[in-house]
């Protein structure tokens, strides 16, 4: 099932299908390891509901749901 990363709930995980977007943010997401076929898992959501913490490439990354929207996941 395909979802965007911001729609995943805590402890859900899946494989990245695509990353949309342009420019600096897009490039930053790629540099941080959010590339096609990488596995991501939502570790937690901040107490106020945003941003989220995901595990990717063995480390923890924080990003806002706004940015997570650009990432499509094949949920497992």
């Amino acid at each position: 099932m395909k979802k965007t990363l911001n729609q995943l709930s805590k402890n859900e995980s899946g494989m990245i299908v695509s990353i949309q977007g342009k420019g600096g943010v897009h490039k930053r997401l790629l540099d941080m390891g959010l590339v096609k076929n990488a596995m991501v898992k939502v570790e937690r959501v901040a107490p106020l509901g945003d941003p989220i913490e995901v595990k990717v490439k063995g480390y923890s990354l924080l990003l806002r749901k706004e940015e997570a929207k650009n990432i499509t996941i094949d949920v497992q």
Binding site: G24, V25, M32, E53, S60, L61, L62
Partner: peptide, 9 residues
């Protein structure tokens, strides 16, 4: 500006 940052242990 975006918020994309590493959470170090």
């Amino acid at each position: 500006s975006p918020f994309v940052m590493e959470l170090p242990p």
